[in-house]
Write a protein that binds this DNA or RNA. Structure first.
Lengths: 210, 210
DNA sequence: ATCATAACTCACTAGTGAGTGAATTTATTT
DNA sequence: AAATAAATTCACTCACTAGTGAGTTATGAT
């Protein structure tokens, strides 16, 4: 039952955010009395956190593992694209293979990261992985200015977050050519797209200097 | 007074979203009785829409104008970077020069685009400009597959939305090296970064083919 | 000064939200 | 079958939200 509650909460929070969902909404969709949620979870915030925590550890561990593996495999010569592939694809694979639940979690996370509190809370979890990524990026771009790498990273997360947030929505613009839950398509493009961006702004800096 | 109400609503909605803000919150911060908001605006949704509408037209007009100007100036040979500069910088300039209000609006828009309803509502306004951009991008990349351009565009908005959404928050990760309201820094990097990405995924497609 | 209108407040209603503690049902053990 | 514990519902409280309509103050024209 607890799992079902988390599943529904995950879905609803991902669509409407923390304040846009009531415990009754969740309970109703689960088909259970709303006070049962207070039985399993102290309060609304606890439920929200539980939704996050349930899967956060998994993503983080996998990503960290993937980055470690990549760096080892690269044997001292990592590339931006390689690092980004490790960072992004590992996550995207989860959403591709993990079924409905993981897709909702992706959207949930993206939504949560939008509020100041949510972002701060999540950063606590994710910062180590991000720093690990940035560490590898620095090795791949030894001449790069630190700001450039950080800005590049911001662009990457932005793109990823938007993709995750829009899961399941139709892209009217492209007349359905791009489905926002077509993570295969994203996986196929994103790392390479972003790697080129990183290279470019480092190049730009050299030009600015010289 | 109406302006003050809109200003405060803009700020609060940008932080907490539609459901995270009560009319009392807004009224209190304006220093006015909460029922006054019902005097100026039919209901909460009307207020929200008014916040959006107040500035939306300005951005859209300016962007559309900038794209038109660019295409004319490019005289049949537009570049991806040029188009993106027109599209992005025009907006960023507004946030740079427009003062606090415009910065809040940026965050407000990014926040609003996160909910399904909000996104759909906004898309109605923004679709024409976006299609105009994509039109130019297609001319700049005549060999590109349509999906690639749409995906690239998604990455661009994602990065932009994240930047706008995080306005005013400190980036702990970079120890303050990147300030998310340092739009000058974004302006300096984003168009070029993204243009390189576009080029790359078109290149990739050629490789995939041949 | 007077009247009219705009700007704003007050007192209130109806409804909803989260949360509590007692009561009941369901499952588990003995 | 009885006893016990877990799972679930019920009846309720308290705080708060959006919104309404009547009332009040300020503003401005005549």
């Amino acid at each position: 039952m607890m799992e079902q509650i988390l599943d529904v909460a995950e879905l609803l929070f991902s669509k409407h955010g923390f304040h846009g969902v009531t415990l009754k909404d969740v309970a109703k969709q689960v088909g259970v009395h709303h006070t049962l949620l207070n039985y399993y979870f102290d309060d609304k915030q606890t439920l929200f956190d539980a939704v996050f925590a349930r899967r956060a550890v998994v993503t983080i561990d996998r990503r960290m593992q993937a980055l470690d593996d990549y760096e080892r495999a690269a044997a001292g010569k990592p590339t931006v694209e390689g690092a980004l592939h490790a960072f992004l694809d590992t996550d995207l694979d989860l959403y591709i293979q993990g079924g409905e639940g993981w897709k909702n979690y992706g959207a949930f996370g993206a939504q949560a990261s939008n509020s100041p509190e949510g972002a701060e809370f999540m950063d606590k979890y994710f910062d180590p992985v991000v720093l690990r990524l940035i560490d590898i990026l620095k090795k791949a771009l030894p001449d790069a200015a630190e700001e450039d790498i950080f800005w590049g990273y911001h662009f990457v997360t932005g793109a990823l977050m938007l993709t995750l947030a829009r899961t399941g929505r139709i892209d009217k613009l492209s007349h359905g050519l791009c489905l926002s839950d077509d993570y295969e398509a994203v996986k196929h493009r994103m790392a390479r797209f972003m790697a080129a961006g990183f290279r470019e702004i480092c190049e730009q800096r050299k030009q600015d200097r010289g």
